Simulated scan of single mutants.
Amino acid sequence: MAVFAFSVAPMTAGESVAEQVAEAVRIVRESGLPNRTTSMFTEIEGEWDEVMPVVRRATEAVARGGHRVSLVLKADIRPGAPAGQIDSKIARVEERLAADQSETGHS
């Protein structure tokens, strides 16, 4: 199991890349794998062999306009970890922050 964060965008599409990025995000969402998109990255969770084809299809979709493509990929690979790490990693940090607040009395 792994959580991958990636950013894919055309390098020569002008000021806005929203249309191309939206197509990449659509492909990720249609994969059925757990995912989320923020202003900088799309995260997707699954096994290596199921995630990488999705990243490839998203990259190819961005490249269809004949653009040079930039792809940034980061992975947290956790053999044997249970599914749900895309959410539980955040939950653990939030729990720690809440515990820190209760220990110091800050709200």
Results as ranks from 00 to 15, higher is better:
V62Q: 08
S31W: 14
G105S: 03
D87C: 01
T37M: 07
G65I: 01
A2Y: 01
S31V: 03
D100V: 01
R36D: 12
S39R: 10
E50R: 15
M1V: 05
K74R: 15
L97W: 04
A99T: 06
R29V: 00
E94P: 00
V8R: 07
G80D: 06
Q85P: 01
E103M: 12
P10W: 08
T37R: 03
I90E: 10
L71Y: 06
R78I: 02
E23W: 03
P34V: 02
L33C: 11
G32V: 10
I27K: 03
M11Y: 09
G65M: 05
D100Q: 13
V3K: 05
V51K: 09
Q101S: 07
R96T: 09
I27S: 04
P34Q: 10
Q101N: 11
R96S: 14
A22C: 10
R78E: 08
A63G: 12
K89R: 15
Q85Y: 01
G65A: 10
T104A: 09
T104Y: 06
E47R: 07
V3S: 11
E60M: 07
F4Q: 06
A81P: 04
A91V: 14
N35M: 05
G46Q: 11
A9Y: 02
G105M: 07
R26C: 03
G14Y: 05
V17D: 06
G14K: 08
A99W: 08
P79V: 01
A5C: 07
S39T: 09
S7Y: 08
E45A: 11
K89P: 01
I86Q: 10
F41M: 13
V51W: 04
E43Q: 11
A5Y: 04
A24V: 07
A81H: 03
L73Q: 02
P10F: 08
Q20I: 00
K89H: 13
A75Q: 12
A81V: 00
A61N: 03
E19S: 13
H106I: 10
S39C: 04
